[in-house]
Every structure is written in C-alpha cells, then in structure tokens.
Nucleic acid binder design. Structure first.
Lengths: 129, 129
DNA sequence: CAGCATCCCGAACGATACTG
DNA sequence: CAGTATCGTTCGGGATGCTG
C-alpha cells in the first residue's frame, strides 16, 4: 500500500502522529526503557496503544526493539540514530510551542503545559498528572 | 474551556492539526489569497473544512482575515507575524521529512511526496494531483 | 511480562442544501 | 462569492479478555 504525502512536512508529522508517540519518544530520550517502565511513566495509556505506537515507531526506524529470550519476557526500547535526529526537530518545535503558549496566556487564553521543565522535550523526567 | 498539553511540542502540533491546515499555510506563504483561490488550489477540500480550518488558524493568530465590504463579497487571507515564524519551523520539518522519505525509498518503502519542489514548503506553487 | 484480538464510542471529516 | 447548518461516515483511540 502506497503512502502519499502532499508536503514533505506531512512525512515528518506522520512519524509522530497520534496521542502517545511524542511522549514515548520523550521518555526514551533519557535512555532505553522496558515496556512496563514506559507503561508506568504514562499512566492512562492502554496496552493496545502502547504496543501499537511502539510498533509504528519501530517500523519507521525511530526506535529500536530489543527482545531478550528470558522468562518472564523482557523487551527494551531505545532511540535509533534516526530517532535522535528527529529529537532535534522536536526541540525546536518545543521552543516555539513554549513561546506560543506564553503569548496565548498573555492574551488571556486558558491554556497550560503540564511538563514545564526548562529543557522542554530534552528531559521530561517528572510524572504525568 | 481549558487546553492542557503534556508537552510544549503538542501546542505547536495543535496549530497545524488536521488534514488541510498545513497546505493552507503553504499556499498563503506565497502571499494573500481569496477564499475561492484557496479552494481552487486545493481541489477536494469542502467548503466546510476550508472555512473551519481558516477560522481555527485565525483564532490562533496564524492567519489574518480581511473582509472587504463589496458585492459580491471579497475576503482575503494572509499570514500573520506569528504565522511567518511558524513557517521557519515548518521549513525545518520539511527538510527532515524530505530526507526521511528519501531514505525510506532507498529502503524499499512505497512512499511518495507529491510536491517535490526543491524549496519544499517554501513555495508549493504547482497544483495538487 | 509483553503482545494480540475484539468491541465500542466520540471526534474529525465529507457531502449537501441553504443564506446574505 | 463567502459562510452556515445538518446529516452521515470514517477512523483513532479506550476497555476488556485471552495467549505465549
């Protein structure tokens, strides 16, 4: 099945499409994580969406999936080189978004960003509320 | 109604969310356009989606709506300063997306970008197929 | 523990008809 | 010509149960 984009930007957006992929990438930016760890870092995500999102990212060679043949099963995910390069773009989008929200707040809009770390996308770290 | 983002990047993505906003911004990058002109540049878009997308962009202060009191009605849309600054981000995303698709094609993926201008997002110009 | 399959709901999108 | 209103469809996403 052929994928057709009207603009190159759409190819980039296609990678991070959906509700959870960004946050997954954000967490993986701090280093490899197991499935269960990702799950705990993102309360609210369903098993289905986690698996599905990770599979999409793996197919796009953004994350690496490493499966250890152990009992119980153990699977680790990490960023690929391509994933790391995407991170740079996301950092710029993060900066722009931060500035935008600040302006919107000054304009009186009722908007908020939960993760207000200084380094934005670089290090999410803290928990979701 | 409060808007809550987990990451600042999501605020940026929220601006260009949807099927048509990117392409609208792309066309407006070449200069102001009337409603009907935008419509003709994007065959396939419905009256509803065009109006709705433009309204969203206007509310976010990304595009400017100028209405002339004439008969027949005449309305022109253009990029705001904020819209212009967004454009810079989109250009980087475009470059990254272009490189990505190129790699994907080399990997054998069946993927294509319709608008293959050298300047990517900078000047869409040609028609949609 | 990690992943798959199924069902269900709501938001986004599309088609059409109508108004100033 | 530009915009509104309404209706129907599609698709992303949530909940749950089952398998290796």
């Amino acid at each position: 099945m052929r994928k057709i984009y009207h603009l190159a930007v759409e190819a980039t957006l296609d990678i991070i499409r959906g509700k959870w992929k960004l946050r997954i990438l954000c967490h993986l930016g701090n280093g490899p994580l197991r499935t269960g760890e990702l799950r705990r870092l993102m309360p609210g995500i369903s098993q289905k969406m986690l698996t599905q999102s990770l599979k999409d990212l793996e197919n796009a060679h953004i994350v690496n999936r490493r499966s250890y043949n152990e009992v119980p099963p153990r699977v680790e995910y990490s960023l690929t080189e391509r994933g790391m390069s995407l991170r740079n773009i996301l950092l710029e989008m993060s900066d722009w978004g931060t500035a935008l929200v600040k302006e919107q707040q000054e304009e009186g809009d009722d908007v908020k960003i939960l993760n207000t770390n200084d380094d934005g996308f670089r290090n999410m770290g803290n928990e979701d509320k």
